[in-house]
Write a protein that binds this DNA or RNA. Structure first.
Lengths: 245, 245
DNA sequence: GCTACTTCTTGTCAGTTTGACAAAAACATA
DNA sequence: TATGTTTTTGTCAAACTGACAAGAAGTAGC
């Protein structure tokens, strides 16, 4: 098995990005319309090959994001999601892709870049249900990304990353409901959040969010990164949305 | 940015394996002594390059494990741990490595294979403390693997994978204590395990494990894969081992 | 201004789970 | 038979959860 002059094979490495955000209380994922073959015209995750053999994966991820969607996301924290190496996932040959996950606050509509004919936010439901078909194995990547986001919401203070610099507890609840795909009791949620030490900090006085109702207090992200004890996600019910009552 | 005839760079892809097991109530990791440069003679994780460009990552992982450590681990379930791509992690040039994690029951002492001068189990404490130095960035990979195993023990029935086909609840507790690095109250642990539906199933009558004391009942792994509610790992205390009382 | 309506926030209460610990059960050994 | 060890079953107060009532603080309609 070990010839004297055996050379290991070189592989094409790519990165793919799952960028999640909340719009109108629904979870959305950033997709681009592919401008080149293969899958030209199909929806796909932003991403692409390394530019040169010394480029790091995160650097490539940031670069592709900037190229394909002009979003100014310097501060975006990319979390490694996984490696996708199924032979045959790319018709061009063996391409191994490293997927990254990022959670973004309400972002502006992106505009198209170089390789992508169009870029925009799409509701994740459409992707999960298969109503919206994606190129390559990107549907699986999105599925994995959402699942990862779900568990991260349980154990880390990530939810605040979905919100702006200040937010209300109801905003936070919207995040949990959208990502977990179920509704929660506002009163129990309120209690749980406020009891979790260091999760959120008061930020100024109340302000109205909706046109009506009692104005909610404002908070900002606290120092705590890891939630202990964790937020416990209620057991999933067979039918989609879980009623709070 | 998009020349007409730009070719993406090809990268060397490798796999590394973190195989954890329990020996004498201590967590051990499988290491090999490198038989070739670089880091010849140093301890390292089993692993290596893809053999050909069509080989899948898991296939490569299984192959390397068999080559370097003759362990019969067909049934070993490999979990993707992460990608390590720090430029400069390998003096030979740009090598991107995909790490896999596996949990093994009490295994026999492995024997050396082709590329590895020697293979054997080493206590993870030695690696974490830095007493035992590893090649490349393998210490970080081991650290990440253990951390992953810790959270997996919380949320999945993985602990039974450390044990043989049948085991006692005390055996299971040993697993949790070794991986979490703390001691737990046997009575509360017993209650929690038995209350978690589908985690373990009774397996025959009692049998003696230690030479003394009341014989423990035997159990085998149950159908449940995901633990809900999870086993909650007590908050870490500043000093290493956490006393149960 | 007054009433209705909405949303946010604070409580209440019974049931469950946790952490700490006592004590019985079931063996081996001296 | 007495002693020691380990496993297993309980006990009890404290903390937490899920379901729900009700007060607080605004806007909108009349």
């Amino acid at each position: 098995m070990s010839d004297d002059r055996w050379e290991p094979p070189a592989i094409l490495l790519a990165v793919d990005l799952v960028i999640l955000t909340l719009r109108a209380s629904r979870l959305h994922v950033l997709l681009v319309e592919r401008g080149v073959e293969p899958y030209e015209g199909a929806q796909a995750l932003p991403g692409g090959f390394l530019q040169h053999s010394q480029e790091s994966l995160v650097a490539a991820a940031h670069r592709e994001l900037a190229e394909e969607t002009d979003l100014d996301v310097e501060t975006l924290r990319l979390e490694q999601l996984g490696v996708y190496d199924n032979p045959g996932r790319d018709p061009r040959g063996r391409v191994v892709s490293v997927a990254f996950l990022a959670i973004a606050p309400r972002l502006p509509e992106p505009t198209a870049g170089t390789d992508a004919a169009d870029a925009g936010w799409q509701p994740t439901d459409l992707v999960l249900s298969g109503e919206l078909e994606l190129a390559f194995d990107h549907r699986r990547i999105v599925t994995d990304g959402i699942e990862r986001a779900r568990t991260m919401l349980e154990h880390s203070a990530l939810a605040t990353a979905f919100c702006g610099p200040t937010f209300t507890i109801t905003d936070l609840q919207d995040v949990y409901e959208a990502v977990w795909g179920m509704s929660l009791d506002p009163r129990n949620f309120y209690r749980k959040i406020k009891k979790t030490d260091g999760f959120i900090l008061p930020a100024g006085s109340a302000r109205r969010k909706a046109a009506t109702g009692r104005p909610a207090r404002l908070f900002r992200a606290g120092p705590r990164e890891v939630l202990y004890p964790p937020m416990i996600r209620p057991a999933e019910s067979p039918n989609g949305k879980e009623p709070a009552q």
